[in-house]
Amino acid sequence: MKTDDLIKMLAADNASVAPPISRTMVLALAAGMALAAAHFFTVLAVRPDFSYAITHEARFIFKFVFTLGLALPAGLLVLRLARPDGTAGVWKWLLILPLALLAIAVGLEMQVVPADHWRAAAMGSMPVACMKYIPLLSLTPLLAMLIALRAGAPSNPTAAGAAAGLVSAGIAAALYATFCADDSPMFVAIWYVIGISIVVAIGALAGNRLLRW
């Protein structure tokens, strides 16, 4: 095929332009969040003391600081990485913040809780459920974001997939946190982090396979 012929074809196809990728991504994120919330309310429920805990229990509040603190910068990252010229740049360092806060919270918890109670605090009451539900609740937002990213053109498909995984996991973990009765930062640092890491790994693998263009 001659390049001039290709130009004619492309010019004739001028009207086919898709909506801006940022709009597609934001819509996918909103749809994914709504689906994850619907999923949450069908299988789980907000814990009965929610309105008290969210105003009085620092440990409970911190679970949202951490999970949403991951989801927010990851959301900004995935918007950037959807474009061919988008790089993680300095934005990826924002992810250090929630992790540093978690480390500080764990340190404080170790000061407050006597050493012979650490094990009980870290294991909580339902560690396995946490590891199970964070990935499960992430599925719909991750799927929505991956579909939207296929319309994008990420230069680094693996990183874009991982960032999509992190947004989804952050949202899922925040939803799960409203149900979960285990509030110790030590519990969060182990079981939430494992659940979130699983989703990030799935996102990276899926990105690597599905987001090439």
Binding site: L6, P20, I21, A151, A153, W213
Partner: peptide, 10 residues
């Protein structure tokens, strides 16, 4: 050129 065309919304 084809990629630029199909991805111009990015």
């Amino acid at each position: 050129m084809l990629a630029i065309h199909l991805k111009r919304h990015t």
